[in-house]
Simulated assay, not measured.
Amino acid sequence: MIEIQNISFKYAGTSRYIFKDFDLKLEENRIYGLLGKNGTGKSTLLYLISGLLRAMNGSIVFDGLETSKRCPDTLSEIFILPEVFKLPKVSLVNYVKMNRGFYKNFSDEILNNCLRDFELTTDIHLNELSMGQAKKAFMSFALATNTKLLLMDEPTNGLDIPSKSQFRKVVAGNMTEDRTVIISTHQVHDIEQLLDHILMLEGKELKLNASVSDICDKYKFEYRTPDDMADILYAEPTLQGNAVIAPRGNSEETPLNLELLFNAVTKGAINTK
């Protein structure tokens, strides 16, 4: 669905490459978690995929067309929800009227369902909302565009604890067989139950590219006492005991601990190849 081939990119006036000869292939009907330390290029990659930034070389192809060409057919199937945004001083109804025409599969049903799940009404005025409410309203519109590709940059920032739970429910409830969602975030606990696939960026390269099912087939995530550490690959002390990653072997599957996995990968404690 999305094929990134040999791209390089740096911002004008700088000498440091964010990406150099970078390759990645993404499939449809997946929710990807895009993780990495500050400055590794997570947001930049989303903007490159959307076509809002253009690579210096290489190509990014979505449904057979290069996104950098900004073709109307391509743009109607891509929506990016940035971390920081400013909505106009209009009602939601008028905002929808002004923008729905750009998205050929826009769904009023999805919009109304998302607003309901976020405990918002259709008669809201965008300039009168708190940051969290504005994010939920914009997220509802983003999902209602019904695009094949939805890119989200730090979507849970500014949301309270109940709203983060609502976010997971809303995104999961509006996945379709031909939709791909890429979520860039530092708030790994907010999304780890939602993801199908993990991407980790580090130093201009992809440090990890694996499905959640493959990770959980290979490793187990659990808490152990100090006298039960013989086979561990990585461990961190916590109030519940040592949080560890160990080979799963024939034991039962455990829930993914995404923060622990991220720390283990960035410290080179587990083999990601």
Rank of each mutant, 00 (worst) to 15 (best):
S163R: 08
S76C: 11
N99E: 02
E128G: 06
E3L: 08
L81F: 05
G268K: 09
D217F: 03
E192G: 06
K104P: 09
D228H: 10
I78E: 04
T238E: 05
L81D: 02
V90S: 13
T266Y: 03
E119C: 09
K97W: 11
E205I: 14
E205D: 13
R224I: 09
L48R: 06
D73T: 15
E128P: 07
L81I: 05
M131T: 15
S211H: 00
M175A: 02
I80Q: 02
C114H: 01
I2R: 04
T67M: 00
M131W: 03
N105H: 15
V61A: 10
M1I: 10
N146L: 02
S50H: 06
K89D: 09
P247T: 13
A210M: 15
E28A: 13
G41Q: 07
Q187N: 09
M229P: 14
L195C: 06
E259C: 02
N94D: 15
Y47N: 14
K135Y: 09
E77I: 11
A264I: 12
S15L: 02
K42V: 01
D190H: 04
G13L: 01
T176R: 11
F141P: 09
S59K: 15
P255H: 07
A55K: 01
L35M: 05
G158Y: 04
P88W: 03
V265R: 01
T254E: 10
F79G: 03
Y219R: 01
G13M: 00
Y234K: 01
S213P: 01
P226D: 03
T176L: 05
T156E: 12
F221A: 08
S50C: 12
P72Y: 01
I49M: 11
Q187T: 06
F85G: 04
F102L: 11
S68H: 14
E66S: 13
L75R: 14
I191Y: 01
Y11W: 11
F85I: 05
L206Y: 14
M98R: 13
P155I: 04
K204I: 12
D73Y: 08
L53N: 06
P72C: 04
H186L: 10
P247H: 07
S107T: 10
Y95D: 14
Y17N: 10
L195G: 03
Y103S: 11
F221Q: 08
F118Y: 08
N99Y: 01
D217T: 04
V181D: 04
L206S: 12
K267L: 15
E236D: 06
T67F: 00
D231E: 15
A142F: 07
A230L: 07
L256S: 07
V61L: 12
D108F: 11
N6H: 15
G203Y: 03
D73N: 12
N94R: 14
N127Q: 14
F221E: 05
Q193H: 12
E192L: 09
S76W: 02
S251G: 07
G39H: 02
E83F: 08
H197I: 14
G203T: 10
Q133T: 06
N242K: 08
N271F: 09
D214G: 00
N94Q: 14
C216P: 03
S43Q: 08
R70N: 13
T40G: 00
S107G: 07
E28V: 11
V244Y: 00
H197K: 13
G203Q: 10
F138K: 02
N113R: 06
L45K: 11
A142I: 10
S251K: 09
V170C: 05
L48S: 07
S8R: 04
K220S: 12
Q166F: 04
N146W: 00
K135F: 08
D190T: 02
